[in-house]
């Protein structure tokens, strides 16, 4: 119990770490620069034209969502094995980031799909697996909010199942022919590549800044909850 309350006892325990602030600022600036470069530096693609620019946004978002999968799988398994709150917070942070970036992917994807395929949505293997994963993770957050005392355990189990499900559909991609474009990063022109990798970098920085902030938030929340319990016990209510 004491370990978490330490946050409030230490001088500067509640202050945001300077490195986190630096990371966030750098990420924000780079994000702006890469957005500018997407529109004014990268050449317009010949076949798809202007719509292709979604690619610089869509693909990094998808990568960030996939980053969250091992994160929450690890967090959930470790939580089920040890029942330590630390791992539950990691899993929760992973789930939230996956929902955020997954939603961005599924907003940017259809905008491109409408132009390329003529429809917003197709039941392609990749699209389906993505949708299934994000839907399951939303269910996971709903469980967390409404299931009561055993919510953490249920949420851990669910996020493991979400990852298993995503893996299952991912494996079936080979069997299930899709219309989603294959990996094309290697085929890009030089300027396009530069912009793309800058965009990927800025998304990574933003991702880790958010992850850090989210983990800190969880930690502070736990500490605050415990402080509330302590104050009630001490009759300060």
């Amino acid at each position: 119990m004491t370990t978490n309350l330490e946050l409030f006892d230490q001088k500067d325990g509640l202050k945001t770490p300077p490195l986190l602030i630096t990371l966030s600022v750098v990420a924000a600036v780079l994000m702006g620069v890469s957005a500018w470069m997407v529109f004014f530096y990268a050449p317009t693609e010949k076949v798809m034209g202007f719509v292709q620019k979604i690619f610089y946004f869509h693909v990094p978002c998808a990568w960030m969502t996939l980053w969250s999968a091992p994160l929450m799988a690890f967090g959930s398994i470790a939580y089920l094995a040890t029942k330590k709150d630390r791992y539950d917070r990691l899993s929760d942070a992973g789930v939230e980031l996956a929902i955020l970036f997954g939603t961005l992917v599924m907003i940017s994807g259809p905008l491109w799909g409408r132009k390329a395929w003529g429809v917003y949505w197709v039941w392609d293997a990749r699209l389906t697996s993505f949708l299934v994963m994000v839907l399951t993770l939303v269910a996971c957050k709903i469980v967390r909010a409404y299931a009561g005392p055993s919510a953490k355990t249920i949420a851990a189990g669910l996020s493991i199942l979400a990852v298993v499900n995503a893996l299952f559909v991912w494996v079936s991609v080979d069997l299930w022919r899709g219309t989603h474009p294959p990996k094309l990063v290697a085929t890009l022109q030089v300027e396009m590549k530069q912009v793309f990798w800058l965009s990927v970098l800025s998304f990574h920085l933003a991702y880790f800044a958010m992850l850090w902030a989210r983990l800190r938030m969880g930690k502070l929340r736990t500490a605050l909850d415990r402080l509330a319990i302590k104050s009630t016990e001490a009759g300060l209510d």
Binding site: T128, V132, L135, V143, S150
Partner: peptide, 19 residues
């Protein structure tokens, strides 16, 4: 052992059995 489990079962089950 969850609260409101009747509602939650449907919410949780359908995404996972979508495949």
């Amino acid at each position: 052992r969850a609260r409101t489990k009747d509602v939650l079962l449907a919410v949780v089950l359908y995404p996972l059995i979508l495949p």
